[in-house]
């Protein structure tokens, strides 16, 4: 009964929404033009990076807070201290992972640098870093985390704190996250570098904290 109602509701919703979506008049505000016009003052050449870290940088600040928060919630919920039980890892895999990890770090640095003028940036770079950590963990070269040390916590929160500091500094001079055009490029690179490290660690942490495998049974 519930199933029927939900499916019927979903179908009605789709039909109604699709019907309303066609023959829509063009939007009255054309933001892409505004973005293009203000791009030179943003400090970066790629429009998406400009929106993410300058025009709507405040969204990004809060979004990093959400990510850091998710990490803290996982820590607060309690980690199982069950021992990691895994079949032994093929040494060839370990050797390959050792080869891949430095390359991945290089790719991450490239992505970070490329973000200023083509698709790339802190998120992609952080994701690659995290992938490297996960890879090393899977071949048992990097242990899972239980409770992060002070240094690790500094790494996790550091990028966010740099971003906050830049925000607070700009607020004292004028508006929150208002970059003077001549320094905008450097400030954005600073924020993105901090974020790359922290995002890499947080994303890796989301995996490493949850990966403590205690076999198949509870």
């Amino acid at each position: 009964m519930k199933r029927l109602l939900v499916v019927l509701g979903a179908v009605c919703f789709v039909v109604l929404l699709l019907g309303a979506m066609f023959d829509l008049a063009p939007a009255s505000v054309q933001l892409h033009a505004a973005v293009a016009a203000n791009l030179p003052a943003s400090g970066v050449e790629h429009p998406v990076t400009a929106v993410l870290l300058n025009f709507r940088g405040y969204d990004t600040l809060l979004e990093i807070a959400v990510l850091l928060l998710a990490m803290i919630v996982i820590l607060a919920t309690g980690i199982d201290t069950a021992a990691d039980v895994r079949p032994s890892v093929n040494p060839v895999l370990q050797a390959l992972a050792k080869l891949a990890a430095p390359l991945m770090i290089m790719v991450a640095v490239y992505l970070l640098w490329a973000g200023a003028f083509r698709p790339g940036g802190a998120f992609q770079a952080g994701a690659v870093l995290a992938a490297a950590a996960v890879l090393l963990h899977l071949v048992e070269l990097l242990p899972g985390w239980q409770s992060p040390s002070t240094r690790l916590r500094l790494g996790l929160a550091g990028g966010f704190l740099v971003f906050l500091a830049v925000g607070a500094g700009s607020l004292m001079r004028g508006a929150l996250l208002e970059y003077p055009p001549e320094h905008a490029g450097r400030l954005i690179l600073l924020v993105e570098s901090g974020l790359t490290v922290s995002l890499g660690l947080i994303l890796a942490g989301l995996f490493l904290l949850l990966s403590r495998d205690d076999g198949d049974g509870p």
């Binding site: 505000v29 025009f55 940088g57 508006a175």
Partner: peptide, 13 residues
């Protein structure tokens, strides 16, 4: 009011 980033709506927040 406060225009974050100094841009002002609708480009900024």
């Amino acid at each position: 009011e406060h225009a974050v980033g100094g841009w002002g709506a609708p480009l900024g927040i």
